[in-house]
Write a protein that binds this DNA or RNA. Structure first.
Lengths: 144, 144
DNA sequence: CCCTAATAGTTGAATTTGTAACTAACAAGC
DNA sequence: GCTTGTTAGTTACAAATTCAACTATTAGGG
């Protein structure tokens, strides 16, 4: 049992993680929001399709741990922007395969470059060992 | 300029941070949500008042990097639950000092114990050095 | 086949959050 | 002591998220 008098919320791990997540998401948000009018849910879907190729909404949900309603609306928005197309799966017509269009791939490539640079910038203050440890720790905490 | 073909969203730091933050917040959320009907904004305000004593809404905002509307609503909710009271500051009647009631302090103490245990549990897989590095890195990323 | 259960995905309503405009109180200059 | 500007906090409205119910399709008995 912990002693509550010396417990400081500012070193509480979930709190620290939230603060770091918010702060680090802020600068990158500008790019997909201002330049492409996308929401966070939308670029996440875009990134998964861009990196791992065509897949169903359900598959994205499993990978990204996103709820299916979020994905449904993100997919609808991306379709409206003509960044992706849907195609019913022959063998199971409930599911539909999502594929990036040429435009979608271009946007993906552009944002990838930005994200890569930004990531490097965030990691710059840390040594290679520290970077590796940080990522391992976060993956573990995220239960990935 | 990064090469976009080897860029993986799953090692993108803001993404990892978000996943870890969500996952780690989940288990603790149960306690303040189910047992006390509080939102995240509310327990944050409660924790700050519990740890650092009576202060104004503005002071909480600075410390916790929370927007003033969030705080305003959280304070109203906590007041309704009778976890805190307000008192106009004599010398500047725009501001009001927020103070935890006896009940609020009890809830705070209870949640502190839970949070302390949970924090220890989250950190258990890591060595002391790793824990220290992790916290330092997160503080830096959060610009605290 | 037909009935029930399960799954993929969508939609609508209720919460929650974010943005901007607002009130009230103070401060500074004239 | 007015006028202008600034700050503390609230409120109204819009945007986003969550939750629950819904449709359509498939799967598995009997």
């Amino acid at each position: 049992m912990a002693d509550q008098t010396d417990f400081d919320i500012r070193s509480f791990l979930p709190y620290l993680l939230n603060q770091a997540a918010e702060e680090s998401s802020l600068a990158f948000q500008h790019h997909y929001k201002q330049r492409y009018g996308m929401l966070r849910t939308e670029w996440r879907v875009l990134f998964h399709l861009g990196r791992y190729g065509a897949m169903t909404a359900n598959a994205i949900g499993t990978r990204a741990k996103m709820h299916k309603t979020k994905i449904s609306r993100a997919v609808a928005a991306l379709e409206k922007k003509r960044y992706l197309t849907r195609q019913k799966v022959e063998t199971d017509r409930r599911r539909e395969l999502l594929t990036l269009t040429r435009t979608g791939q271009t946007v993906y490539a552009d944002l990838c470059a930005v994200a890569g640079d930004y990531d490097a910038q965030l990691l710059a203050p840390f040594s290679a060992d520290e970077q590796a440890l940080l990522k391992r720790a976060l993956e573990r905490l995220a239960k990935l």
